[in-house]
Design a protein around this nucleic acid. Structure first.
Lengths: 239, 239
DNA sequence: AATATTCAAATTGGATACAATCGTGTATCC
DNA sequence: GGATACACGATTGTATCCAATTTGAATATT
């Protein structure tokens, strides 16, 4: 059961040898997107990307197609690929889905209790706090995302792990698009509290906490902002 | 926001004109897989597929990659693609994820109450019963799957809809692989009961019903059966 | 001067061609 | 006789090529 490229960005996968050329490119692009080095709407021409990665367009297209299926890039016919600009509706859907999934899987984490998973989670919390104190902005965001993914992986269910990983990547993109200054550092360090609740068998409280946590993040994003995505003018100017 | 090919198999999409060549192939292959006309493990050589669909390998490859990302086909390096053979662990994970997701989204369906969605659900139940009574085996399975997907779509959340669609397709594959004779017709017609519970505001009961329903289906599959997937002979014959 | 038409540059979509790799069968060597 | 080495066939991986489409600008037209 091989890991999807999306998951492999978050979990420290020991199988770094099974890198086909295009997966490495997928990971690098993915990383660049969630690091906000590629902003939403940025065009992704196959030629220049191929030149940058020193591969042909064929390989680039394979990578772009994979990202497109994760909704991280959009591909319009004959008009190329660009970094996705999720609509406000889509943003809401993503966070709603996350609240549903991630609070529902907490009982599984508790049930499937495995020491190594908890150790990993504690480590991530530690690193996250350290990154915040060091003012390492990008690192902190990345670690926060990894915490959420790792929690899903701690259920022992890879399917859930991948779904959460995908939603987390989309969240990064959404925050990159609609996020205010508050979206970034507002709620960090608190992950420790969640972990504590789980370990103290306060499962229901932990679920509520997670639901609240994600809702808070969603509320920080500025949904009134225009996304700049393609608008359906036909319905907008129906005279 | 364009539909993924996976969803478009289940929902009656009016935008059948936006079919790029490869999406049509994806849908046909997907349909063949969930209809069991392509059994798990079947090799999918690019040449012969290209010949069958009268397109080049490039297009076939694109289609196969999309299916691979949904875990419906596996692609081994230099050894081609074949219809996936989910491991027993993966089968368990899929159904666990479905129980989590599909029971959790029921409150949303109830909350997002929209008349057309309910009409569609009632229509599907009707057709499902009709198909069963007519003894149309494949049709019935297909309609049952569509019910589950449509329920997720009825939340108004396309992200959830797609995730459930993906899990549903995988379920079909899993049943095709491990399913016993009981896996097929055991629990049909009951979908009506679920719908009734939701409409009567008995949300919690409906959730329990769904959880039970999926658990029942999972229990019908024969997890003791060998999947035929790549086996680790070394550990199997360690003398 | 404003609008419409045409043309050219750039970029993608798809097909073909070549190189790399894997599995299998055969031959050779011990 | 058995095992290793080699080679062949088949199939995939990647690059290149050509046609199709879009986009923007320049020119023509009213």
């Amino acid at each position: 059961m091989s890991l999807s490229p999306n998951l492999s960005v978050y979990v420290t996968s020991p199988d770094s040898k099974s890198d086909s050329r295009d997966e490495k490119i997928v990971r690098e692009l993915l990383q660049a997107i969630i690091d906000r080095r590629l902003r939403p709407g940025t065009r992704l021409p196959e030629d220049s990307l191929g030149e940058a990665f020193k591969v042909s367009r064929t390989t680039i297209r394979k990578a772009l197609q994979k990202l497109a299926q994760q909704r991280l890039v959009t591909m319009a016919h004959n008009r190329g690929a660009r970094v996705a600009q999720p609509s406000r509706k889509e943003a809401e859907d993503v966070f709603t889905a996350r609240r549903l999934l991630e609070s529902a899987l907490i009982p599984m984490v508790h049930q499937h209790q495995q020491t190594p998973a908890y150790a990993e989670l504690h480590k991530l919390v530690k690193q996250e706090v350290a990154a915040r104190e060091a003012g390492q902005w990008q690192e902190e965001v990345q670690l926060s995302a990894r915490f959420h993914v790792q929690l899903a992986v701690a259920t022992g269910n890879l399917i859930l792990g991948e779904q959460v990983a995908q939603l987390t990547s989309l969240s990064s993109l959404i925050i990159s698009l609609y996020g205010t200054s508050a979206s970034v550092g507002c709620d960090c360090g608190e992950h420790k509290d969640l972990l504590k609740l789980i370990e103290e068998n306060k499962v229901e409280q932990a679920q509520k906490w997670m639901d609240h946590h994600l809702d808070k993040i969603y509320r920080t994003i500025n949904t009134s902002l225009d996304s700049g995505e393609d608008v359906d003018f036909k319905s907008l100017f129906s005279s």
